[in-house]
Design a protein around this nucleic acid. Structure first.
Lengths: 214, 214
DNA sequence: CAAAAAATACCTGTTTACCGGTATTTTTGG
DNA sequence: CCAAAAATACCGGTAAACAGGTATTTTTTG
C-alpha cells in the first residue's frame, strides 16, 4: 500500500484527488493539507510514502515545502502536481528534491502511474515537463542555479497587492501615507528579490504562486 | 436523477469532480468538456440539467459559454465553480444567466448542495460570493453594467503574451519587426478593450481567465 | 466588389517606471 | 541590550509607459 498525502489549497480539488486515488487498491490517502506548513505537520504525523504537492498556496508554497520535507524525511517522495509548465518551476522543484512533476491537465491514469513510479524510487516527469526541462538546460549551461527566492516583508507584500490592483507609485504612497520615494524603494527591493523586471512580471509571479491578493 | 455536465480545462479536476459527484445517487455525470465550445456541443447532445462551469479556459471562457447556454437551452442551469471571488466575475456571470456560484475551496458537501439547489430552480451563492455581490452593488448603484468584454485580435493576443513575458514596447517591436508606434497603438487598444489601466492589470486579467500565455 | 475590421505607423505631450546609489529611523529577535 | 532586519526617505538620471489623437495600408468578410 502506498500512503499518499494530498497538498492543495483548494478543498474541492483535494476531495477530487482523494476520490480518484481511493479507487486504486494500491493507494491509500492518509491526509489533506491546504498549505506547506500543514503539510509538514502531517508528514511528521503520518510519514507518507508520497506527497502529492501543488505549488500555488498561501502561507508556505510548494517549493519551500518540498525542500523542507526532503530534508527531514528522506523516505518521503514528493510528486508535484501543477498547472504550470515553466522552466523556473520545474528547475526549482527538481532542485528542491521533488521526484516527479505532472500537470493538472493529465488524466487519472497518468497520475496513478506517476504515484507508483515515485513510490518505487523512480523519477517521473510528464512528457511536456521533460521537454521544458531539456529546453531550459540548453539555455542554462552552467548558470547560477540557486536560491532565487526570498520571502517578502509584510510591507512589501502589502505593496504587491496594490500593484496587482493597478495602483501607481503615487497612489500607493497616498493610500499608505508614505512618500513616493519609499514606495519606489520597496518596488525596487521587491523586483530584485523576486528577480522580475517590471510590474507585469511581478503580477505573473504572484498569481502563479497563488498568493493572497485580496 | 440530475444530469451534470462538467466543464473545466484541467482534466485531473474534471476526473476529480466526476469521482466526487458519482458517489451521490441523485447525480449522474453525462459528460466532460475542456472549454466553452465543447460545452455547447455537449449541451446539444445531452441536454444536461446542470452545467458545472469553470471560468478560466482557452478557446471560449466560462462567461461567454454561460451566455450561449442560457440563451439556447433555457432548462439547463449553470453553476459556476471558480477559484476567484471578485465582483467583476460574479456580476458578469450572474448577468450572463448563471444560477449559482461556488468557490473551489468549498467542500464536496456544499458542492452537492449547490447542484441540487440549482437543479430545482433555486439560486445558490456561496457565502463569500454573496458578500462580494452585495459589496459591489453598493458601489455600483446604477453604473454601466454591460458588455465590458471584447475579444482581442490575433495580433493583440500575440502582444499580450509578450507583455506577460516582461517584454517592453521596444523589445516587442524588435521581435515582431514592427515600429514601436504600432506596438503602442496595440497596447492602447488592448487596455481599452479589457478596461485595464496598465500592464499589471492586463496580466491579472489574462491569468484570471486562464488564457494561453505560452 | 465594397465595407468593415485589423494591422500598420506617426505625433505631441505628461507621467510613471525603473536603475543605481545613499542614508536615517524604527522594529525585531537573540 | 545590541545587532540585524525592516521601513522609511531622497537624489539624479534614462527609459518606458500612458493618453489623446490621426491616418494609411492590408486583410477579411458579407
Amino acid at each position: 500500500m502506498i500512503k499518499v498525502l494530498i497538498v492543495d489549497d483548494q478543498s474541492i480539488i483535494r476531495d477530487g484527488l482523494e476520490a480518484i486515488l481511493t479507487t486504486d487498491p494500491e493507494i491509500t490517502v492518509c491526509g489533506h493539507a491546504c498549505n506547506g506548513l500543514e503539510a509538514l505537520k502531517l508528514c511528521k504525523e503520518h510519514a507518507p510514502d508520497v506527497v502529492l504537492m501543488d505549488i500555488s498556496m498561501p502561507e508556505m508554497d510548494g517549493i519551500e515545502a518540498t525542500k523542507a520535507i526532503r530534508k527531514r524525511w528522506k523516505k518521503t517522495q514528493v510528486l508535484v502536481l501543477s498547472m504550470y509548465n515553466n522552466h523556473e518551476f520545474v528547475n526549482e522543484l527538481m532542485d528542491a528534491g521533488a521526484s516527479g512533476y505532472v500537470l493538472k491537465n493529465t488524466g487519472r491514469l497518468e497520475l496513478k502511474e506517476a504515484i507508483t513510479a515515485v513510490a518505487n524510487g523512480h523519477r517521473y516527469l510528464a512528457k511536456p515537463v521533460q521537454a521544458t526541462l531539456e529546453e531550459s538546460q540548453q539555455a542554462m549551461v552552467g548558470s547560477n542555479g540557486g536560491e532565487r527566492y526570498h520571502s517578502l516583508t509584510k510591507r512589501e507584500k502589502e505593496i504587491v497587492k496594490l500593484i496587482v490592483k493597478e495602483r501607481t507609485t503615487v497612489e500607493i504612497a497616498d493610500v499608505l501615507s508614505l512618500s513616493t520615494g519609499t514606495i519606489e524603494t520597496h518596488r525596487k527591493n521587491i523586483f530584485h528579490k523576486l528577480d522580475v523586471r517590471n510590474a507585469a512580471g511581478l503580477v505573473k509571479y504572484a498569481m502563479e504562486r497563488g498568493w493572497e491578493l485580496t
